[in-house]
Design a protein around this nucleic acid. Sequence first.
DNA 1: GTTCTAGAAC
DNA 2: GTTCTAGAAC
Length: 187
Amino acid sequence: MAKNSGHWSQGLLASMNDAAAVVDADDRVVIIKDKYPKALFHFLVLPRQKIPNLKSVTKNDLSLLEHIQKKGEEIAHRANSELKFRFGYHAVPSMSHLHMHVISQDFNSPCLKTKKHWNSFTTEYFVDSKDVIRQIKVKGQFSTDTQRMNELLKSDLRCHVCGKCFATIPSLKAHIVMHDVTKLKDS
DNA sequence: GTTCTAGAAC
DNA sequence: GTTCTAGAAC
């Protein structure tokens, strides 16, 4: 076993080979359930090709990125066609191996516990797949302001539906369950 | 990425 | 006294 292969940041590689985690796969991608889902439905779409992160993506990978998004939209619709979903990448991911999040916008999950969790899915730290693809098309590569992104994670807790601010995670969570996320579809 | 927990915040 | 957050993890 190579050094570091068992490190927590390599966990997605193990999950890709875990039959219990995999929900779908084809010749180019594997789709797994997030081990600690931050919403009712939370999947990760990973390319079989070993791409560490967005920084190593080039124009040669555009069709793969589009395939990843298409497969994500499919699994979301199959999981629940009523809920609003978002499809995108963390600007500064913790886990190695490129992965696109497919996450329903209820954020109703006991695994969502911290300000970092919340802000990583509701601020610009979450980059829509469409915007990643657009940037690769225009600039040929993905770039991000890491320092600014890490500051965004410390932003005040703000409801992603109505914009109201909250002092604590529990008060925010009590608030967001009152929004009917099925009504947000296509908004 | 999570777990654990000290001490801040209430 | 309890809730909640934030930083270390060798």
